[in-house]
């Protein structure tokens, strides 16, 4: 992990934390007195950790970011559990999307590093894992499977759009 990547990751940690807690946690849309659309941007932090980051470290960082968001959202353990799961899934997603000639081991998953199409598929799959885990933990029972599915279906595009906008605006190299 180069020092630029380190600094960028630290900045993303704080920036995404503040962004999620103060802006996107207020976003909720639904009908019939229930909310089905939420926006999650902080999985971007886990997604954009350098490829060479050791797997336990990725999981630990994901846990810490989730826990920080939980402290502000009064949902202790929810975001942390979901993001820990996402961090665990990251190498699996990367393996699914692996190009024929493999990854450049020194890169960071970014538009520049993976290419636009692969980057958004990568972000989409990670978000799918994250949202499913999060809403499952939130409902805490498979009895609400329909609810979980609806929330995931509505939140996934919204979150993906927001993430894409952020990635395209900042367009980080590391």
């Amino acid at each position: 992990m180069t020092s630029t990547a380190l600094v960028n990751s630290a900045l993303r940690f704080v920036g995404l934390l503040l962004l999620q807690v103060f802006i996107f946690n207020q976003v909720a849309w639904g009908w019939g007195g229930r909310d089905y659309l939420f926006v999650f941007v902080y999985p971007l932090f886990v997604a954009m950790l350098p490829l060479r980051t050791p797997r336990p470290l990725v999981i630990l960082l994901g846990f810490l970011l989730g826990l920080s968001i939980d402290f502000f959202s009064e949902t202790l353990g929810l975001h942390a559990g979901a993001l820990t799961f996402t961090a665990y899934c990251r190498p699996l997603v990367l393996r699914i999307l692996e190009p024929r000639d493999g990854y450049n081991i020194k890169t960071t998953p970014s538009v520049a590093g993976l290419g636009t199409g692969r980057m958004f598929r990568y972000l989409g799959l990670l978000l799918l894992a994250h949202l499913s885990a999060f809403f499952l933990l939130q409902a805490f029972s498979l009895v609400f499977a329909a609810d979980i599915l609806l929330k995931t279906v509505f939140s996934l595009p919204a979150s993906l759009v927001v993430m894409a906008v952020l990635v395209l605006i900042f367009n980080p190299k590391a």
Binding site: P56, V58, F63, L76, G77, A80, G81, Y88, P91, L137
Partner: peptide, 27 residues
Amino acid sequence: SGLFTFAVLQLLCLYLIVNHNDSQRRI
């Protein structure tokens, strides 16, 4: 090690969820 880290942290999260969130605790 990834799996172990994940398992430990996930159990910790479940513990926190069950102990600090009302609806999950009730379920």
